[in-house]
Design a binder for these strands. Structure first.
Lengths: 194, 194
DNA sequence: TATGGTGATGTCACGACGCGACATCACCAT
DNA sequence: ATGGTGATGTCGCGTCGTGACATCACCATA
């Protein structure tokens, strides 16, 4: 008979999701989560540096994968497209149903602390993209701008996609967002395009 | 003889800046700040909902002013420029020397909690811009994209400006960033510009 | 089989954070 | 002078997050 059950981390994640669902994020304490997962509070904080992170632990891996992909496939000639294509091309459905992602999104949006965390993750991803593009030979200033803007473009598309019916493809929606952006670039600048 | 000195809020801000400078953000507790400002800890939290906010209390006013300006002067035909021009046209030097702003930036960048807060403020400003543009008649999707991208473009320019010598004007640097962005829009999209 | 190392978890103690409830008192209008 | 109001203090509490050290299952290897 093992002294401890295995899989504490999974039990913690599971318990946290349940409790957030039942009571919301704020009204759920780390102690409650730990209790339901049958571990001590201290163990909770060994797996997750804070209460927010339990919602982003998986996302961290996803971001790393995306950055890696940009690093491998980026086309220096079109850094902005490299970013949006990588993001739009990912199999988001594979992460869970659209409905699950929608609910996760809503949970995050409803809580300032979670929103802050989400934004910083996104920022880190942007930094990763910029670095990857730079390594592939892009000018640093261009790389940073492409990363930041590319992510913003995709984010708006992603949210549209979450709300859309099944007919809409993420790639298509993202293309539409890019077109929108292109349409709002002043003509003066477009003329200067090399 | 007044029972309490007046100007607690200012004393708190002052004390906080000093201590952050002396010891860094993490190693400064709310208690220390309150002590130096000669108020109780409870009073600290009455003025600032948390330790981070003491660094952003002023910024909040600034953001509100910028949003108002976009709401008043936005040109619906060029929402992206409306955003970047408002931001680049503001008198940032009036907020303090470039050096002060640089140090503030460094302090924020050096601390995750502060970075999170900064990003969420920026996000709120973006939401404000988007709303303002929408009210002025812009399509909601376009408004959101213009706000987000405009801010990102300006942010990169602003950081360049902080590092630059006195010769460089913020407006010029921002224009350069816009050109960079225009240059990376795929030609296919530029052709579709209405 | 014995032994010792290693990793996961527990236990304890502590400081920092943030808030609710209520008390106090300077100041101001009337 | 008097009563209201706003700023501040006092007290107590629950939550967050961490350091230090103890425990014990499991594994490798002699």
């Amino acid at each position: 008979m093992p002294r401890w059950e295995h899989g504490s981390e999974d039990r913690l994640k599971q318990a946290a999701m349940e409790l957030f669902d039942e009571q919301g994020f704020e009204d759920t304490s780390a102690v409650q989560i730990a209790d339901r997962a049958r571990v001590t509070t201290r163990t909770f904080f060994r797996y997750f540096p804070d209460k927010q992170e339990i919602l982003f632990a998986d996302a961290e891996l996803l971001y790393a994968a995306l950055v890696r992909q940009v690093a491998e496939t980026a086309d220096v000639a079109e850094p902005l497209r490299a970013v949006t294509r990588t993001l739009a091309g990912f199999d988001w459905e594979g992460l869970g149903s659209r409905d699950v992602q929608r609910r996760r999104d809503a949970l995050i949006a409803s809580n300032p602390a979670l929103l802050e965390r989400e934004l910083i993750k996104q920022q880190r991803m942007a930094d990763g993209f910029a670095d990857a593009l730079h390594r592939r030979g892009a000018d640093p200033a261009v790389a940073e701008l492409a990363a930041q803007v590319g992510i913003q473009v995709f984010r708006t598309a992603y949210r549209e996609w979450l709300e859309a019916g099944d007919d809409a493809g993420l790639a298509t929606i993202t293309e539409a967002a890019m077109s929108r952006l292109a349409a709002m670039m002043p003509a003066a600048y477009q003329a200067t395009t090399p």
